[in-house]
Design a protein around this nucleic acid. Structure first.
Lengths: 80, 80, 80, 80
DNA sequence: ACGTTTGCGCTTTAGC
DNA sequence: GCTAAAGCGCAAACGT
């Protein structure tokens, strides 16, 4: 077996692994859409649901930023 | 327990289920990035790899389209 | 004057207008970096400054999302 | 007025100046998108336009590089 | 100077 | 089919 073949084989494995993960991700995405559809069939508005999810995400991010900022201040003041 | 409470509870469950799936999706995405990083450390160019994956995906789509078309014909002709 | 020439001229004007706006944008970006540099020379940490700005932006976004959500609820309940 | 207050005030001014410049930048960005929308409504493909602008930009960069190189030589030779 | 990491812009996809 | 939003890739900025 030549080096070139070995190398190509390695690349092929990487590519196939990534493609498999992409399929997995797509599957999860379909599950998400299924959940939205299910909720919609129960009378919930998907648009509002997305806004709520977005808002909760923003709140989480803001809180994490707060903590990071505090941490940075502490580092700058030599408090560890 | 009032109807309103039941409804809110149901909505909450949908929201949390979707948020959980979002986390799952994010995890898979991180795995993908890990694979790219691993490939990069082996000397492969991630940008080129993405192009390859895209091309293979397009080919796959074309092939699936062909298969769907064939299936449609078969259905139309009563062959199954 | 042919139609083709007229069309090309119009496209050219669009392109040049956009390129000019891009230059303008780049100029503003340089002003921003100048401000960061000025602040840094006064002893302020650009990293912390960026975090503060980011945080204030997140807060603004969250507030806007809140208002949008409220508005959507009102629409759904037929309150205008 | 304490030093701390002075410092905070100065930081605040920097932050607000940068936020104002960010708004300005965002405004220019919106103008750009407006131009693209206008071009699109005239039948031009924004995607292709972006490719053209990118190409012209690359050419310009190469030209600027040449000019910088020339400048470097001039400095090295004491010509200014 | 390089590598890492974050922010910004584009592309694509989902909803109307 | 179009508009709007979310995810992704790229590039610039920071730290080492």
């Amino acid at each position: 077996m030549t080096d070139a073949t070995t190398t190509d084989q390695q690349l092929r494995l990487f590519i196939e692994a990534i493609e498999r993960l992409n399929s997995e991700k797509q599957g999860v995405q379909e599950d998400i859409q299924g959940k939205f559809a299910e909720a919609k069939s129960q009378g919930y508005d998907p648009k509002i649901m997305r806004q709520i999810i977005k808002l909760r995400s923003l709140d989480r991010q803001a809180r994490l930023e707060q903590e990071m900022l505090l941490e940075t201040y502490k580092c700058n003041l030599g408090i560890d």
